[in-house]
Simulated assay, not measured.
Amino acid sequence: SDLTQGIIEAGGNPENILTCHNFYPQRYTCPSLEAVDATNDALKKQGISTAMFLSSQVPGTHGPWPVSDGLPTVEEHRDIPVESQLKHMMAMNNVTEAIFGNAFASDEEFRVISETMQQAYPEMESLDAVDPFFGDIVREWLPDGQIRRIPLKLHLEPGLSQNEKDAIFSFNYHVDLGDCLNYMLRSRLGRMLYKGRDFTPRVCEREKFVKGDVVLVNDNCKHYAGEVQVVMKDMKNDGQRNLLGHIGENELMILDEIGAGDIYGFVEA
């Protein structure tokens, strides 16, 4: 970022500067995610585009050297599906482009990337199919008319009611306002949109909920019933929340990147 700042001070146009991180064929040689994230943030503040490398999971794929352990920019991406890598880059909110480094990614990997992009960038008109009022709220957040959400893969618990499924999927633009980001990502809109619906408590034998669990406030706490929460720290199961499902292991790190005002949604695993 010091180099690019010098280029800008010398008259360079940030819009004409493209930067890209390295890739690392040898396992455990990647820089830390924190260092990459900080560099990206600094470049973003300068108005400069930044690319990172996706690592194909196809066995035997290679880069420039005779090594076949993937080709990521950060070690956390080396062994997880490409769509999870891509969603993590989206959630970082400072990556402009994702590039496959190793050859050759499969047709299936390109298919799931295309599917993920469609899930992440839905048509704005689809908001009105659920509720015009809440559609207008989302448009206020996104005055440029482009909606982007992080589509988290959710493994559902068996036996969910239709009301519980609606709270997850019908209005699938969840957001935490940021005032209580601690134990959970808290999506408040559901309790307003589904006020008065039946959210009967369901028995869950677990003593506590853990990071990645997705829960819904039930009728034992009626004022907040219908609120969807993604658990970020261990929380005691006090009977006021129904367990809806859990985020897959490969996508837990995505939760750490979601902050106030970031829109996320759920797709069934």
Score class of each variant (00 low, 15 high):
Arg139Leu: 01
His88Ile: 00
Pro132His: 14
Phe100Asn: 04
Ala120Tyr: 07
Lys153Thr: 15
Trp141Glu: 15
Glu76Val: 10
Lys87Trp: 00
Pro81Phe: 05
Lys87Gln: 07
Val67Gly: 10
Leu71Ala: 15
Ile99Met: 03
His155Phe: 11
Lys153Asp: 15
Ile137Asp: 07
Thr116Cys: 11
Glu75Tyr: 10
Ala105Phe: 13
Val58His: 04
Thr61Asp: 04
Ala129Tyr: 09
Glu115Pro: 01
Met89Gly: 05
Thr61Ala: 15
Met117Arg: 08
Gln118Trp: 07
Leu142Lys: 14
Leu152Tyr: 05
Thr116Val: 05
Asp131Val: 01
Glu76Gln: 14
Met89Ser: 09
Val58Gly: 02
Val95Glu: 02
Tyr121Leu: 02
Ile150Cys: 10
Gln119His: 11
Trp65Val: 15
Pro143Arg: 12
His77Met: 10
Asp69Leu: 12
Met117His: 04
Ala91His: 03
Ala103Cys: 09
Trp65His: 13
Asn93Pro: 00
Glu123Val: 06
Arg111Thr: 07
Asp79Met: 02
Pro72Gln: 11
Arg148Leu: 04
His62Trp: 12
Gly135Ala: 00
Ala103Tyr: 08
Phe100Arg: 04
Asn94Trp: 06
Val112Gln: 02
Thr73Ala: 14
Gly63Leu: 09
Ile99Gly: 00
Met89Glu: 08
Gly101Met: 00
Asp144Lys: 12
Val82Asn: 07
Lys153Asn: 15
Val74Ser: 10
Gly145Gln: 03
Asp69Ile: 02
Arg148Asp: 02
Leu156Tyr: 10
Ile113Arg: 00
His155Gly: 06
Gly135Met: 01
Val112Ala: 01
